[in-house]
Design a protein around this nucleic acid. Sequence first.
DNA 1: CCTTAGGTAGACCGATCTGTCTACCTAAGA
DNA 2: TCTTAGGTAGACAGATCGGTCTACCTAAGG
Lengths: 197, 197
Amino acid sequence: MLILPMDKQELLVRTAFKFFYTRGIHAVGVNLVLAESGIAKKTLYHHFPSKEHLVEAAIRYRDHSYRTWLISRLENVPAGKLALLELFNALTDWFHSRVPDIGHFNGCFFINASAEFGDQDNAIHRACAEHKAGITVLIRKHVGELSLPEGITEEITSLIVLLKEGAISMAHVQGKLDAALEAKGILEKVLNCYADK
Amino acid sequence: MLILPMDKQELLVRTAFKFFYTRGIHAVGVNLVLAESGIAKKTLYHHFPSKEHLVEAAIRYRDHSYRTWLISRLENVPAGKLALLELFNALTDWFHSRVPDIGHFNGCFFINASAEFGDQDNAIHRACAEHKAGITVLIRKHVGELSLPEGITEEITSLIVLLKEGAISMAHVQGKLDAALEAKGILEKVLNCYADK
DNA sequence: CCTTAGGTAGACCGATCTGTCTACCTAAGA
DNA sequence: TCTTAGGTAGACAGATCGGTCTACCTAAGG
């Protein structure tokens, strides 16, 4: 019986992500990642030319796992309005750290990383912006299921994205873990408003 | 004629804020702040027992200047709905770096600082949360001018805060500098919805 | 068994981090 | 004018940073 050797590159990325997410990127040195993962520095620099590339890999890793989680949440309810409301249920579970797949809540990794790399031209910042754009596309697709006029579809998409981002901020900065529930209540009301017209 | 000696403590705080805001807190060493301000390290540690205390001073400084700016913006329009919409005009000016008082836009300093100091119990994080709570109080006061039932007042306040935080996130992470205008449009529609009922 | 090639370990490098220390400089009061 | 106290300057210390280098270890092929 052969025990498969752990893929060290993936272990590095997962370990790096865990620390970058919980403690911040500049605050975490590669030595800590190496000590925790039991991997040698030479091996890290064999796989990644610099810490920055490790950070980018951590961002791609989180982008994939977060997106995968969110997609599956939205797929498991009937398309349309219910899926849009489910988004905020999912956020609430995330805020309360009830989603093992994506770990203990510590704000949005992409917002946090953008805060540390504020320059819009920075590769890390750009990767964060692309993640957000991808999530917006996902949301827009679900809004499209409502079969509203295109202008309204865009407007609802904007509203949902703004509410979502706002809820993440309030949950993290102020510890208002039910911010997404507030947002959900508001969204319901507004959707009814649109329906009445 | 006596030339008043520059208050070195204030110069330290202003210089520190400038760098912390534009480059991040962990990414900026005290040596850089000292070199830029021309102040000696001993003087810094005479006024502040540690870098962390300097960071807290920078946060208090920003809290004061930002709050002062926002209050004056909201005071200069008729109370009520116009003031609420003016909030988003002010945000738009901020995002486009058209407000010299508060400098070039680089996201919300308090969100950024919270990202670097994620622990809710951390003094820096708590100071950021208190700033946000203070701004929410300010907004609630203006919503109160609409003389709506208390529940509705709270709901509108939540909506505005969520839209504001969401707009800040989108403006910084994705560079959508007109996010506050989108939010304003949505707010107008929603307020009309409430009025119709 | 021997060779060889490539991944691995961790000592090491110069730079930079926060924070300390001594020596000095200046201004106020006798 | 002399004393004295406190703010100031910047060298310094010890730790840690990102990144490099040499020595080694292991597994495959002849």
